[in-house]
Design a protein around this nucleic acid. Sequence first.
DNA 1: TAGATTGTTAATCGATTAACAATC
DNA 2: TAGATTGTTAATCGATTAACAATC
Lengths: 223, 223
Amino acid sequence: MVEFLTTGDILMEDKRISKAVIARLPRYYRYLGEISEEGIERISSKELSVRMKVTASQIRQDLNNFGGFGQQGYGYNVKYLYNEIGKILGIDRQHNLIVIGAGNLGNALTNYTNFEKRGFVIKAMFDVKPQLIGKEIRKVKIYHLDTLEDYISKHQIQIAVLSIPKNEAIAVAKRLVNAGIKAILNFAHTDLEVPEDVIVENVHLSDFLMKLSYRVSSLTENQ
Amino acid sequence: MVEFLTTGDILMEDKRISKAVIARLPRYYRYLGEISEEGIERISSKELSVRMKVTASQIRQDLNNFGGFGQQGYGYNVKYLYNEIGKILGIDRQHNLIVIGAGNLGNALTNYTNFEKRGFVIKAMFDVKPQLIGKEIRKVKIYHLDTLEDYISKHQIQIAVLSIPKNEAIAVAKRLVNAGIKAILNFAHTDLEVPEDVIVENVHLSDFLMKLSYRVSSLTENQ
DNA sequence: TAGATTGTTAATCGATTAACAATC
DNA sequence: TAGATTGTTAATCGATTAACAATC
């Protein structure tokens, strides 16, 4: 069978990276950043696996989805690998965000300075409460939700953060999609209805507590 | 082989439920709650699968990890199934929480009234800033972190929510463990070091943004 | 009873781990 | 060169989907 293939046949294929792999990348990135700050220049998959409590095999498999970043007999250059994973994650450049909902959670997120360290810059907030419009959180201005589409079309906004009650979330998500937003970080406790090409990441906070609750409860039952 | 087994041999086994199944339970619970509120009394796995955009097979497999909740030819009683999943998740009873860190995120979480609807009651907050001690957020008092162990031993606290900077998180987590806490919802951007029997659920907010960023970036690259 | 739909077994698919030849 | 460790193939494990007999 091999003789029928010519160079490039297989390389052309757009290999789909599994969600599990992508979900692990931020953790690699964090560990490599810490290791780099410790002044360590090189690391083997084995050493990294011990730190991260995963298998060395998984690390090598994960990384080789994106290319060969290591060197036989040597391991990986920490800083280089850190930068490469940053590129893969797309955080080598700035992403402009808007936050919809200037309530407690919206404010907390806007005040969360760690986002900017990773290139995520919050450009504006939106709400409907008259008393909030015009206020500023860390230099980020709150606009009325009516001006949402206008703002998005005038600025380079890639990602919207949705921190509003669930009964309004679906309608606002549709407006975001119509205005051209391609990615939504959804804190509202509902699934959004968006086209296939719009990316949604759900953060349902009470779901995390329920998972804890399950495990706490099953512990006590068996004892 | 079968003739060697007597009744009960297999039933004794403590079947481990996979994490993937448990992670799906809160979503089932949410959909069933909504369906119940619509006044729908029964539903088949097929109908539910259409709503939830999963396979009917997966629903039946998931549920049958915990018992047969349905009836052939009929489907599932919505309210009954809702309650049963609630019991499995351990939210048929109250869980007392404490929140460590009364910053923006800690305040937002304490103000998040949805937790109480699911039986998660925040009993106290802790911080080190003198100007915060004694203040109240929604009737929840802020105590000094020095009194943490004392408070935990005097009250029935199952779960701690950690919303403090990462450089303090590991040390505080150790104190929580020593004080007897069995479950931690960790918002600090670091992995905690805890014994095997302590349950940690990590919520690394910037990781979610990085996952979005990856997908936004890979979209633009291929076009 | 006939039809519907479960509970459960079997088949498939995908992800993780192990093994090792390639090579620095 | 000898030793170390990668990149990658093969083996294993687990999770999802399909199929269908059991049964309401």
